[in-house]
């Protein structure tokens, strides 16, 4: 596949090139061991064979286009940052659960829902999926749709909306791929959609 150009996406060397396949194999093997629970040689050999089969089937996945014609291009994610990011995300899950539970149990229920649209400059579809999932997991925001590089997000409160469009989280996702990424570069073209018709137009029309 031809790589998209950009910083931190240099792919040199044997290990970097086949790193994805390697991690995939390790994860699948761990899954096999956990689910089977047998650690003798016979079962491990069966497991290794099935892992090889699955990895071989998965190699073609990058050559199949997504529905909008994009490809899952193989830009290199920065692994240690991914681990840190997952810990941060777990913390966010706890925070958002407590936050929405507080809103639920509050007698007056001080919510002011709104739908906001913003544009993101993340490099590839996978990063957008990560960001969309993270938006849903963080306090008071829910990804409704991703069209092209536009995100449509439902936010429960004014403060959560402001926190979202400050671009801090998007910069975190960006730092998984780029060396440097500041919140100021991210989250442009912010627009609060007041009308249902307008929102649906955005979803159906897609990228302009």
């Amino acid at each position: 596949m031809n790589q998209t150009s950009g910083p931190a996406q240099v792919q040199t060397g044997f290990f970097r090139k086949y790193r994805g396949l390697f991690f995939q194999a390790v994860l699948l093997m761990a899954l096999w061991l956990i689910l089977s629970g047998h650690f003798d040689l016979e079962h491990i050999i069966y497991g290794a064979l099935s892992v090889l089969l699955v990895v071989w089937l998965n190699t073609s996945i990058r050559r199949i286009p997504l529905r909008n014609g994009e490809y899952l291009t193989g830009s290199c994610i920065i692994t240690h940052r991914l681990v840190m990011y997952l810990f941060w995300l777990a913390l966010q899950i706890v925070k958002s659960g407590i936050f929405v539970a507080y809103l639920t149990l509050h007698p007056k229920m001080p919510i002011n829902p709104m739908i906001v649209r913003f544009k993101s400059d993340l490099p590839n579809p996978l990063a957008k999926v990560i960001l969309g999932n993270s938006i849903t997991l963080t306090p008071g925001t829910l990804t409704v749709d991703i069209k092209g590089s536009f995100f449509i997000v439902h936010a429960l409160l004014d403060e959560t909306e402001e926190e979202l469009v400050s671009g801090e989280m998007e910069a975190r996702v960006g730092r998984l791929y780029y060396d440097h990424c500041t919140p100021e570069q991210m989250c442009t073209d912010i627009h609060i959609l007041n009308d249902l018709r307008e929102t649906r137009d955005h979803i159906e029309r897609g990228e302009k």
């Binding site: 659960g97 639920t104 008071g140």
Partner: peptide, 23 residues
């Protein structure tokens, strides 16, 4: 409780999607 108390579908999705996940 949130699924019952929140006013519309979207905020109910918040309740079921986040609080239940944490639970």
């Amino acid at each position: 409780i949130g699924v019952v108390r929140f006013p519309d579908f979207y905020s109910r999705a918040h309740a079921s999607g986040k609080v239940d996940t944490l639970g």
